[in-house]
């Protein structure tokens, strides 16, 4: 798979408009500070934010162009694993969702042929791959962990997904949501992780299913995944809709 992913700004326009308004208030204060520093008129947050959003979409295209579908994220020995691996979410650790693995099913929708929900057992029936890779958070810190599970590409083939579609989206049990470009979704290290170390994913790391994407920043690795869908309509993401760069490739 060498096809490059293409971002069309028009697809993002309605969401960007909504987020732009939100960001304007947040940025007002320090934009004022910069205006004072440079003597330029940067008080017009609307215009500045539009430029920042346009640059973020430009950076999406640059990153899609830089992304090499055959380049693997570096892997590490067991001794390099960070202990304890940090918990990180948009909520505190005591709010981690409590999910019963026996009842749990992964819903499938969008541009796929077979929409039958998948049980945990069936996911474990696909060929399993283990990786010890570095998780890099957008905040700057990093930690090395060990995840294993089926390749997302194997899963997509199995459900008859249209792999020429542009996005694979995820909805999570904790109200988190996110999406990947198809090229990254098909990368051999992008896995539907069901194990952390040699045990099933503990609740704090995303039980029962986390999408592990070592070629992306941490927030592009959704936990407690409840649904997968394939689409050509930009699905955005929890953080992306607030202003994090969508591609956020490593």
């Amino acid at each position: 798979m060498t096809r490059r992913f293409v971002v069309d700004a028009a697809d993002h326009a309605p969401r960007l408009e909504a987020v732009r308004r939100r960001l304007f208030l947040r940025n007002g204060l320090s934009l004022g500070a910069l205006g004072l520093l440079t003597g330029c008129n940067l008080q017009d947050g609307d215009a500045v934010d539009r430029v920042l959003w346009a640059m973020s979409r430009f950076n999406d295209r640059v990153q899609a162009w830089m992304f090499d579908p055959n380049r693997l994220a570096p892997t590490y020995p067991v001794s390099a694993i960070t202990k304890p691996f940090p918990f990180n979410a948009f909520y505190a650790e005591d709010s981690v969702p409590d999910i019963d693995g026996a009842d749990w099913k992964l819903e499938v929708s969008g541009l796929v042929q077979d929409r039958t929900p998948w049980t945990l057992q069936r996911l474990r029936g696909l060929p399993q791959y283990a990786q010890i890779t570095r998780h890099i958070c957008i905040e700057g810190w990093s930690a090395i962990g060990q995840w294993s599970g089926a390749r997302l590409s194997d899963f997509l083939v199995r459900i008859g997904a249209d792999t020429r579609a542009r996005y694979v989206g995820f909805k999570c049990a904790d109200r988190y949501y996110g999406s990947l470009d198809m090229a990254t979704a098909l990368h051999p290290q992008t896995i539907l992780a069901v194990d952390y170390g040699d045990k099933p994913l503990p609740p704090e790391y995303g039980f029962p299913l986390k999408v592990r994407v070592p070629t992306k920043l941490g927030f592009k690795n959704p936990k407690h995944v409840a649904a997968v869908f394939v689409t050509n309509d930009y699905p955005g993401g929890y953080w992306e809709d607030q202003g994090y760069n969508w591609f956020s490739g490593s």
């Binding site: 960001l23 320090s30 640059m55 957008i138």
Partner: peptide, 19 residues
């Protein structure tokens, strides 16, 4: 100090930095 930073929050700072 927050007054010496630009962007208002992490997403804003990164947007400025990478633009």
């Amino acid at each position: 100090p927050v007054w010496a930073t630009l962007g208002g929050w992490l997403g804003g700072s990164i947007a400025w930095h990478l633009a």
